[in-house]
Amino acid sequence: MSTWRLLLADDQAMVRTGFRMMLAPQRDMAVVGEAADGLQAVQLAVDLKPDLVLMDIRMPNLNGLGATEQILNRCPATKVLVLTTFDLDEYVIRALNVGASGFLLKDASAHELLAAVRAVCGGDAVVAPSATKRLLDRMLPIVIGDGASRLAAAGLSERECEVLSLIGRGLSNPEIADELVLAESTVKSHVHALLAKTRSRDRVQLVILAIESGLVTRES
């Protein structure tokens, strides 16, 4: 069994302790370092080369957004999972755009956190459905992007638009398969096609595209 090497970045010692208590006992996880600010997070990431950084947004010296960008530029094999609160959701899309592999709200359960860490370390992206709804409430009035034009240029089929909309709502492949009454393998094929046609790096960027293009609304 592989052991994923994790770096915790949060300026609150009690938060880091809580995460360590959840993560360290797992047989497939090892907490290799803790950072109390963004600059320290970047330096430790460069020194330790962790598989994953759990990144807070609001930190002194360098915030999580800047730290995420620097880490991913200097350590391309390292992934970043952003942890946020409702009040800071306006930073999340920017963090995802610079390469973070997903985000969770800080009040996520231990089960959700462990599942997210394993998913990201395994090469997937994580967008918590509850966080997606909150993000929409904050971002829809102010989001600026060319999502609609990108969508038009991609030439997506009606089914692909349906799948993209459900991805934007935070549904997993099995959930999309149930919703559309499709085989999961068919959903995976649609997701691969969406990534290629929209030139998106990963599932997270598909979520952003769905939001910016208006496929996802508060009501949905």
Rank of each mutant, 00 (worst) to 15 (best):
V92K: 14
C75W: 11
L65H: 04
R94S: 14
D87F: 15
M59G: 11
V80I: 12
K79H: 14
L88E: 15
L81S: 05
V98N: 07
N61Q: 09
N73G: 06
I71Q: 08
G66D: 09
L83W: 00
A67F: 12
N97E: 15
R58P: 00
L62R: 10
L83Q: 09
A95G: 11
I93D: 09
L96S: 03
T84L: 13
I71P: 01
A95C: 15
G66V: 04
V80C: 07
M59P: 14
L62H: 03
K79I: 03
Q70N: 04
V92C: 11
I71K: 07
E69K: 13
N63S: 02
L72R: 09
L72Y: 12
A77V: 09
T68S: 08
N97D: 15
Y91Q: 03
T84H: 06
R58G: 03
R58L: 06
D89V: 14
V80F: 09
I71V: 14
D87L: 08
E90F: 07
K79F: 05
P60M: 05
I93L: 12
D89S: 12
L83N: 07
T78G: 12
N73R: 15
T68C: 02
Y91H: 15
Y91S: 08
F86V: 10
P76N: 05
R58K: 12
P76G: 08
R94H: 14
C75Y: 11
F86Y: 15
L83G: 13
N97R: 10
P60I: 02
N97G: 04
G99H: 05
L81P: 00
V82N: 13
T84S: 14
G99N: 13
G99E: 04
D87G: 12
N61L: 13
G66W: 12
T68F: 06
N73V: 06
T68D: 04
M59Q: 01
L72E: 15
L81C: 09
L96E: 08
V82E: 00
N61R: 11
G66E: 09
V80H: 02
L72W: 14
T68W: 02
N63D: 15
V98H: 06
D89A: 13
G99Y: 13
L72D: 00
E69C: 01
A67D: 05
Q70F: 07
T85S: 14
Q70Y: 11
T84F: 06
N61W: 09
T78V: 10
G64T: 05
N63V: 03
T68R: 08
C75D: 07
L96C: 03
L88C: 03
L72T: 12
P76Q: 02
P76V: 10
N61Y: 06
I71H: 06
R58Q: 13
V80S: 03
N97C: 01
Y91M: 14
N61S: 14
L65Y: 08
R74T: 10
T85C: 08
V80N: 10
A77H: 08
T78Q: 05
E69T: 13
V98A: 12
A77F: 04
T84V: 12
K79E: 01
A67H: 02
E69L: 02
R74E: 14
